[in-house]
């Protein structure tokens, strides 16, 4: 299957905070490596989950995918073409076909424009339909995300969080995209409302054949919604595989820890052992070698020296762990350490 969107060795660095005293002392400006060699492909029609804890680079990756950030190194290719080389109408076409849905729709909708006007603007700018058909198309869009027709005349502040996220989705759908990159689209919502949005996304994917990149920190959602999952830690992908397989038998020690840490909905299975000790290292000074090695129980001396590449390592999906090949030999001991979510 040819990939729709690919990234190769994507790197994104941001300057860190640099005080005046640091400057005068000649201390170099710190650099945050938000992404450090990320390669993945997004396949047509799939839902790809990107999961990780805060600071792992998942939102930066999302922004690179839609062209909101220009990476420092590496490339994002859409249907084979490096998006950095796109100009004029080709660039506009890319932005139309790859849309983003943000966590906080209130921050991404113009508060002074009615919902109908916001949707109409997108339709007009991208010349999706002739001007005369715009009002009808606005109604179609609202209907698609299950909002009443009267919503068109109202303003963002008049809606609840869940309704606003529907508007955000309608706005993304207006320009008939092929891919939607959704960055934590339901994280701010209560469970009962979250379920409505999750179902809506699934429904739209099936009916419109959309490709969905779903960025989240919620492993339960990843398991429910995605076909494949990329697990990120400190700017790198540590494991990338079919969701069900990864949940059944995660290969990277970090993925295993993450799965153990998610509170299960089944009472009485409480264990007193923590899933993983220690905290996320500072992205300003990531540990050498495998970034997870200081917290990893399976770490060997070579883990502190070598950055493990994301590779198959004798398994069915790629993992960035030097010990993964060894683990295959002792798979019986590892299988027990990955409980279900």
């Amino acid at each position: 299957m040819t990939a729709l969107l690919t990234t190769t060795d994507l790197a994104m660095r941001f300057p860190g905070r640099h005080g005046l005293t640091d400057l005068l002392r000649g201390i170099p400006r710190p650099v945050v490596r938000a992404l450090d060699g990320v390669s993945l492909d997004v396949r047509p029609g799939e839902t790809l989950g990107i999961v990780g804890e805060s600071g792992c680079g998942k939102s930066t990756l999302a922004r690179c995918l839609v062209g909101l950030h220009r990476p420092n190194a590496g490339a994002v290719r859409y249907q084979g073409t490096d998006i950095a080389t796109l100009r004029g109408s080709a660039r506009q076409a890319f932005h139309r076909q790859v849309q983003m849905v943000f966590q906080d729709p209130y921050g991404s909708l113009n508060p002074l424009m009615s919902v109908g006007a916001s949707l109409a603007e997108a339709l007009a700018v991208h010349r999706i339909v002739p001007p005369a058909d715009i009002p009808r198309r606005v109604q179609d869009l609202l209907d698609r995300v299950h909002l009443p027709a009267t919503a068109a005349n109202r303003y963002p502040h008049e809606f609840s969080g869940g309704q606003r996220q529907r508007i955000g989705i309608a706005r993304a759908l207006a320009v008939e995209p092929k891919i939607i990159v959704a960055d934590e689209p339901v994280s701010a919502l209560d469970v009962s409302v979250q379920a409505q949005i999750v179902n809506l996304l699934q429904e739209l994917q099936t009916s419109l054949g959309l490709t969905l990149v779903f960025i989240t920190h919620d492993l339960r959602l990843v398991r429910h919604l995605t076909h494949r999952v990329a697990v990120m830690y400190l700017g790198r992908i540590v494991e990338l595989g079919p969701t069900e397989d990864v949940f059944a038998s995660a290969r990277h020690p970090y993925t295993q820890a993450l799965l153990r840490a998610v509170p299960r909905l089944v009472p009485g299975q409480r264990s007193r052992d923590v899933a993983v000790r220690g905290e996320l290292p500072s992205p300003l000074a990531p540990p050498p070698g495998c970034a997870f090695h200081p917290r990893c129980q399976r770490a060997e001396p070579d883990c502190a020296a070598t950055v493990p590449a994301l590779a198959l390592r004798e398994g069915h999906w790629p993992v960035a762990c030097l010990q993964a090949d060894r683990a295959i030999a002792h798979s019986s001991t590892i299988a027990t350490s990955t409980p279900s979510v």
Partner: peptide, 23 residues
């Protein structure tokens, strides 16, 4: 309803139960 609206193990092949409306 709240328990059934939670995604997780075993919800993959079905729609989540939704609670219509809002609080």
């Amino acid at each position: 309803a709240l328990l059934q609206a939670m995604p997780g193990e075993g919800t993959r092949d079905r729609k989540l139960l939704t609670i219509p409306g809002q609080a």
